[in-house]
Design a protein around this nucleic acid. Structure first.
Lengths: 224, 224
DNA sequence: TTTATTAAGATTGAATACAAAGAACAAACA
DNA sequence: TGTTTGTTCTTTGTATTCAATCTTAATAAA
């Protein structure tokens, strides 16, 4: 009689995590701008919690590279310089290469199907005006590859690197003239996996990433 | 008369950072063992602070991969499985390769001198019984290379990967029979930089890392 | 003996309180 | 006018408090 009392205890999340996710989203979407101060009391009242979970969330953002805090002066949304971007891209380039090598070896048939579906979803999204959806489906496409690499540590690190450029990348994707190229590149990537051609894939991934650099750089220049 | 009153206001560190460093050290040195619970009150009284900075430090350890917390149950020192180690090594291998490519391009003469000095310091350290000093000088040698890569983001990520194996690596270095090999490899690395031979360096770094795998794997097996 | 049940204690989650540092602004002085 | 000093207000750092949940150990029931 009481078996359905097993309530949803598993969807409990500490407030610090809720706050963390909220702030993270806000930063990535640009609602909180680079350089903007993160004042504890302000955020606390805005989110309807006390300062304690805010502070813990800020510590987490800090380690994610999304916030910077100066002792006794408080935290602010991390700014990225052009050099920072260059550095992150350099790293991500290397990690993307590793990811395709691993994924090429380890991708299951199911994952390959998933990849083709993700490709389709992205293509569909570009036909809408929903930039958010476009960005998400693009990310999802790459997520499949990273998951196929079957290396959670790698996935984490790539995600954190990705996250650091995300804010700027958003602007890049707003420009519809790049859709055709992105779609073409995704198709080529699928082709590469079909043939399990590692060297080819490494090259493509590199190009794919490099294409973003100038656009993102542009956005960064404007910021300052 | 009063010019030397300028006191050291710059060495202030929030307690959370002090606690973070303390716990981090303790974990890396093995004083806090994998799986050991990190109880807030216990740590707080032991370190003579309140729970607040402890909690913030734990959030930081968490994001460093050194602690894992389960909501409402508390944090514990992160355990590493063999698979985790494999994964981290795979990543580090790729990043090391990137680091030597960058360092090869960008290493200054001063840094090359530094590298040779670090080599010497390590060689000296192996002649003592001070395992701590041996580990430190070995790390310092690699630090010079990473610094020469002139990519702080890369440096950060490598450090965090490095940190995750550090605990296990400690055991490896305790065995004096590996010193000779390590010294030889360091010499070869210097040689590679002298000739700016990127491909050669990539290979050497890979070997250098691979040599540690089995030893560390052994230690991990014992743990469980 | 084994399995449920439950009460007590321990531990984490979150809010609040208080102290200390920093920022902003105004009054005093050159 | 411009600089300096003092005062007040804001904000962060840390400690403390209270509530919720988990663990445990003891007790009761099978």
């Amino acid at each position: 009689m009481t078996e359905n009392l097993t309530l949803q205890m598993d969807d409990y999340l500490p407030l610090r995590d809720v706050v963390f996710n909220t702030l993270r989203e806000a930063i990535l979407k640009g609602e909180l701008k680079p350089g903007e101060r993160l004042m504890e009391m302000h955020l606390a009242t805005k989110l309807g919690v006390s300062r304690t979970p805010i502070r813990e969330a800020i510590r987490m953002l800090e380690h994610e590279g999304l916030a910077v805090t100066i002792p006794r002066k408080g935290a602010q949304v991390a700014k990225m310089t052009e050099k920072d971007l260059q550095d992150v891209l350099e790293v991500r380039d290397a990690l993307d290469a590793l990811a395709v090598v691993c994924a090429c070896e380890r991708m299951t048939d199911a994952q390959f199907v998933e990849l083709k579906e993700a490709m389709k979803a992205f293509e569909d999204a570009t036909r809408t005006d929903d930039v958010r959806k476009i960005v998400e489906t693009d990310e999802a496409f790459h997520d499949v590859i990273y998951a196929a690499a079957a290396n959670p540590k790698l996935e984490n690190i790539i995600n954190s690197a990705r996250e650091q450029m995300y804010r700027y990348r958003y602007e890049y994707v707003k420009n519809p003239s790049v859709y055709a190229q992105l779609i073409a590149e995704h198709k080529t990537i699928i082709d590469g996996f079909d043939r399990r051609d590692v060297e080819f894939l490494k090259k493509i991934m590199h190009t794919h990433l490099a294409n973003q650099i100038n656009a993102v750089r542009e956005v960064i220049r404007e910021q300052k």
